[in-house]
Nucleic acid binder design. Structure first.
Length: 256
DNA sequence: ATGTCGGGCACAGCCCGA
């Protein structure tokens, strides 16, 4: 079983990259974030022709998430339960497929909008934590994955890339990330690669890619039974070297 | 001082968000 997540920074700009990548990797599921379009602008027919069901929660200009699934599914949520979504952002979609809750998230960055913007991020984390605990207490299999906009530790960013006050490395953000682990989820990449320095995002500016000044902010978290089946997890860095890339690259997980 | 993208608005070049 193969699973992947990718913040594509506009699906319309990245369509050919995603198509080629899908045909190469053939995951059972692909989570997409920052599709930056409305539902009727999403290229659903192309993905259907590649053998995927398409589940979209879009928004004009910003945000937007989608799931491509090779398997039949039940749509459970197009917004995060128990979240006061004061900005009406499209940042969450959850389906159930093959007896797994597949929870696709685009966590707020938290650097814009001052204190209120940061609080919006923390509120999202709290609601996500509640969703995690609800599923785990009911012994549900689940995968929480997407762009968390959190570097869990200093191992997960190039030194000097972010200022100390950045919302991606604030203690409250990091505590939020660890709260998912403390509640019982497993960070697929870090579990299999405890010492490695790898990133999933490189800013478009300041020659970040050329200098390898990156961040690990895209994560796949697994519930206990799925974690026991974890075989491989890798970050497909090659996508960032292509022409007109997203600033994020895919993260892929293989389970038994 | 901000070196890059993407989208919106509106039709050129700024603005926002990342």
């Amino acid at each position: 079983m193969k699973f992947a997540s990718w913040n594509v920074n506009s699906i319309r700009q990245r369509l050919s990259h995603v198509q080629i990548w899908l045909q190469k990797e053939q995951p059972d599921w692909l989570f997409l974030q920052e599709i930056k379009c409305q539902n009727n602008q999403f290229p659903s027919d192309i993905f259907k022709s590649l053998g995927y069901y398409v589940i979209v929660h879009g928004q004009k200009a910003y945000n937007g998430v989608a799931i491509l699934s090779r398997h039949p599914y039940e749509l459970l949520y197009t917004d995060l339960p128990n979240f006061q979504n004061t900005k009406n952002h499209a940042r969450y979609i959850e389906i159930k497929s093959q007896n797994i809750h597949l929870c696709n998230l685009y966590l707020p960055n938290g650097n814009s909008g001052g204190e209120e913007g940061f609080q919006f991020k923390l509120n999202f984390i709290q609601a996500l934590l509640k969703r995690t605990k609800d599923l785990l207490s009911n012994k549900q299999n689940c995968i929480f994955a997407g762009d968390f906009n959190i570097c869990p530790t200093d191992q997960d960013l190039t030194p000097g890339t972010l200022t100390s006050g950045d919302a991606l490395i604030q203690p409250e953000s990091r505590k939020g990330f660890f709260s998912f682990l403390w509640s019982g989820l497993t960070d697929a990449y870090r579990t299999l690669h405890p010492q490695d320095i790898e990133y999933s995002f490189w800013d478009y500016t300041k020659g970040a890619w050329q200098r390898n000044a990156g961040l690990r902010i895209d994560h796949v978290l697994l519930s206990p039974k799925l974690a026991e089946q974890l075989q491989h997890c890798w970050i497909d860095k090659e996508e960032r070297a292509k022409t007109q890339p997203s600033d994020h690259v895919p993260i892929i997980v293989e389970l038994e």
